[in-house]
């Protein structure tokens, strides 16, 4: 065992880590993103992806979607700590595998390759609501919306077909059906 002389206790047992999507409604004011992100870094929470934009122009409300992972206790703390921030209005938390929730991520791929490979690549993307947003003789840029793991997979598959550049957003989430998170 490593000989340590810390004045603090040893870590206890860790619970199982789960993926969650945390949605935060905040006042769109200076520094609000820094407060949210600072809370995560300061308390050692994880951020896998982060998406933020104003969703209500009149009330200046921004919606922040954060994909994170942690034990159930940590996820609970994240929610409670976020709720304490002054510009935060409400916090929603969804498990990544919750069937009642829609998750989407948007990605842009630039493929530079031969005609043949270009066609192959387009075909592969078709399943994911793909739209060609730009094309030239040697290349095209395609937009897809899909789940995170699907985009991960696409990057893998498109690689050999001439994938030259990838840009992707973090996840955005919404409840299915008529229910709205209050």
């Amino acid at each position: 065992m490593k000989k340590s002389k810390s004045a603090y206790s040893e870590p206890g047992k860790f619970g199982r880590s789960e993926h969650h999507i945390i949605v935060v409604w905040v006042d769109n004011e200076t520094g609000v993103l820094a407060r949210v992100v600072g809370l995560f870094s300061g308390r050692g929470y994880n951020i896998e992806s982060l998406t933020v934009a104003e969703v209500d122009k009149k009330k200046h409300i921004s919606r922040i979607t954060i994909v994170t992972s942690g034990t159930p206790e940590v996820i609970e703390q994240i929610k409670l700590q976020l709720t304490k921030l002054i510009p935060v209005h409400k916090v929603a938390d969804f498990k990544r595998n919750d069937p009642k929730i829609l998750f989407k991520e948007l990605a842009l791929f630039k493929v530079v390759s031969s005609k043949k490979n270009q066609e192959k690549a387009k075909k592969i993307c078709k399943k994911y609501n793909s739209i060609i947003v730009d094309k030239s003789k040697k290349s095209f840029v395609i937009q897809v919306t899909a789940l995170r793991r699907e985009i991960d997979k696409l990057i893998e598959v498109l690689g050999p077909l001439g994938l030259a550049s990838t840009s992707r957003t973090g996840a955005v989430a919404m409840t299915r059906g008529s229910r709205v998170f209050k």
Partner: peptide, 8 residues
């Protein structure tokens, strides 16, 4: 104990 030293 050595183990204990971490726990002050």
């Amino acid at each position: 104990s050595d183990e204990g030293k971490t726990l002050v």
